[in-house]
């Protein structure tokens, strides 16, 4: 059974229909990249998948949770779905280690010892083991973003969503975050990522989805999609200076 299953999802903001019938499924261990123009609905789709936005029709199943559920059900779903945004949104009043330990402690109720070992483990995974006691404000953007990733990982999610996590970073800091994600993918994490880094998508993603005007316009194995785009829109998008 797929980890993420999206069927016929429609999403409107007031009168504006942003998602116009999305079908998508992500198998365990798969890395799916979502590309597309600004405003095509990429972020909205990710936000729907962990219930930050409500959908008007369709069905979303994530890691065995339905999305139609109550507030309580939503929280259960979010325990299994990590999401990282373009802005890192670390908790500024907590040190790096505490940032990571908080949700496992409070939400999952794990012991302090267990939370700490999770934090150390995930920090090591993103290459920041030695910054456990640092304040978020004293880290570079790239480091903060990696802490944000570690913070999500400490919940042991079944799938990770990334929404343009490198877009706010200086070019020289992008690499470290992408490397972190690539390592995660190599370790078998199921990932759904919105990105403008075409080379990264082509190399790391098993499948790439091209969204256009609120629809999945074209989708396929990354190599194939980038080498031989079928639709005029994707050709234009890929030719539009990004590659």
């Amino acid at each position: 059974m797929p980890v993420v299953q999206v069927e016929g999802v429609h999403k409107r903001f007031g009168e504006v229909e942003v998602l116009k019938g999305i079908d998508l499924s992500v198998e365990s261990g798969e890395v799916v990249a979502i590309i597309g123009r600004s405003g095509s609905g990429k972020s909205t789709l990710l936000r729907c998948i962990n219930g930050l936005e409500q959908i008007q029709s369709g069905r979303i199943q994530v890691a065995g949770h339905g999305l139609d559920a109550s507030a309580h059900g939503l929280r259960d779903l979010r325990k299994d779905v990590g999401i990282v945004f373009q802005s890192y949104n670390l908790f500024p009043h907590l040190r790096v280690g505490e940032n990571i330990m908080l949700a496992p402690r409070v939400v999952l109720g794990v012991s302090k010892v267990e939370a700490r070992s999770r934090a150390e483990e995930t920090l090591a995974e993103v290459g920041l083991a030695e910054r456990f006691d640092a304040w978020p404000d004293n880290l570079s953007g790239g480091q903060q973003q990696r802490v944000a990733i570690a913070r999500s990982l400490a919940m042991r999610p079944k799938v990770m969503l990334f929404d343009e996590v490198t877009s706010a970073l200086d070019p020289e800091l992008t690499g470290e975050v992408l490397a972190t994600m690539e390592r995660l993918a190599a370790h078998g994490m199921t990932m759904l990522l919105v990105t403008h880094e075409m080379a990264f998508a082509e190399r790391v993603a098993t499948t790439t989805v091209f969204m256009h005007q609120g629809k999945v316009w074209e989708m396929g194995p990354s190599a194939k999609l980038f080498d031989a785009p079928q639709t005029a829109e994707l050709k234009q998008f890929l030719g539009g200076g990004l590659k």
Binding site: A71, R78, G82, F85, L102, R151
Partner: peptide, 23 residues
């Protein structure tokens, strides 16, 4: 407090009281 702090903690499955209390 920036609304992103609500969003980040919502995404981490905090309940509303937990968000107030810890974030």
């Amino acid at each position: 407090v920036p609304w992103q702090q609500w969003e980040a903690s919502t995404a981490l499955a905090f309940s509303r009281p937990q968000q107030y209390r810890y974030v």
